[in-house]
Amino acid sequence: MPVVLIVAEQQPDGNLRKATLNALTAGKQLAERTGAELHVAVLAKDASGLAAELKGHGAKVVHAASSPVFEHYLAETFAPAVAELAQSLGATFVGGASTAMGKDLLPRVAARLKAAMATDVLGFEGSGADVVYARPMWAGNVVAHVKLTTPVQVFTVRPTEFPAAPTGGAEAEVRPFTPKTEPVKTRFIDFKEVKSARPQLTEASVVVAGGRGTKGDFKEIEALADVLGAAVGASRAVCDAGWVPNDLQVGQTGKVVAPKLYIAAGISGAIQHLAGMKGSKTIVAINKDPEAPIFQVADYGLVADLFKVLPELRQALQSK
């Protein structure tokens, strides 16, 4: 039976990155379209905990590789291991989530498998070997339907387009695997984590985002976020200036989010920013320029000075 192999991702804190569950749903859809079996691979210093966690999410087999080599993610150690596993299974599809790791790793896996690849897949069409991937181009101004004509096909999926794979159903078999290791030319030095007590941007159900209009003063953005239990997001201008960590950039080349509520304050709404948030359920825009393009995607637009209305909004929601 053909195999769809999804690569799971461990966060630096040791937990499973939630986007893995969205990728599993995409993998399940693809497996149904192609008559394949869904497998998932997890590579870590000690993969047993994550493997156990992944058992109940719809995959038939969880492949677990535990090795000190995998303590810190590097494309050069992970790609050969994933490619070797894919080859030994005869997997015809290999994929994962479009996270920083997925985007770094999967093209290198594809290169090893001489496979063509689709990045940021939004959905599938067709069936069997004729499966077609829908994916964004030009900052989401175009959705392209692409076919990959290589024997093995590789992809990353946009997590916001697929629900998280639920638990329940049959338990997967956990199979340990021990990939060959090669000497590598890259060494991990360190990871500086941006710690925050707020929810993760890509996982939050509410996001409060600030732009250049904040002039770098994020106090009111953060205060409103805390009242709503929201994550904080930002435009490129804000990250470039170093006002907030780069990790908070929403857009074409940053994070793609689709919360139930996205509040954009002092953000003009450049196409590159819209590419990262226009899938949100409800969008609120606060901008003092009535012509700002952000209003074209906003469900509720408030033409106002953010320094005046953000505190009012916070107080109104706080006293609710």
Binding site: Q11, P12, F191
Partner: peptide
């Protein structure tokens, strides 16, 4: 990268 900066 996600959640911060990695140095290699």
């Amino acid at each position: 990268v996600d959640n911060g900066l990695a140095t290699v």
